[in-house]
Amino acid sequence: MSDDHSHSTDVADAASNVLCATPAIGHAKNEHCRDLLTRAGPPGTILGVTVASSPGERMSEWSNAIDPVQTKLSFVDVSNGGRSAAMSVDGFGGQHGAMVNMVEIEDVDLHQLGTQISAQLDAATDGPVVVCLDSLTDLFQFESERKIHRFLNVVTTRVEAADAIAHYHIDANGHPTSTIETLAPLFDVTIRADESL
């Protein structure tokens, strides 16, 4: 059951699943993301789930927080998730020798997305295993609140069963309060960051 905490990622330390509601504009999203990635120490494995954002973009944001040589990186990437032409599934040149496992899904298909996330969790051998899903707002472009709620119910359970930790990004200003409140019980902690961060 979600505890409502603003700003702080410290309260998420022991949480398996964290909802991270931050404005789409500004630095809060990426600052919280970096904090949540490393809340259990240096991650052994990171599973990134990208819809409109690209794996390259996420890697770039994480570069100061993780050692891509020491951390195993996997992505489940939705190719047609509403990505702008400016963001491609770029290579990882400049990431100092990072080896990345990439699973491509052509369209937003929650069934495929969910089973791939679960498969990657099962395959992960180096802990702590950290999942970053970016973003629920992107999924809402394609699916209903009801369906996303049911999807997340399965995913959050799978994350916990795998002894992994996960955070899920959502645009704090992109949805009515009722939507975020309806999703909140699925998570152990909901972080809400205002624009001042």
Binding site: H111, G114, T115, A119, R150, F151, N153, V154
Partner: peptide, 12 residues
């Protein structure tokens, strides 16, 4: 299993 869980969740 995953197939059943996501089938049911996504009402397939």
């Amino acid at each position: 299993d995953d197939i059943d869980a996501f089938d049911v969740a996504l009402e397939k």
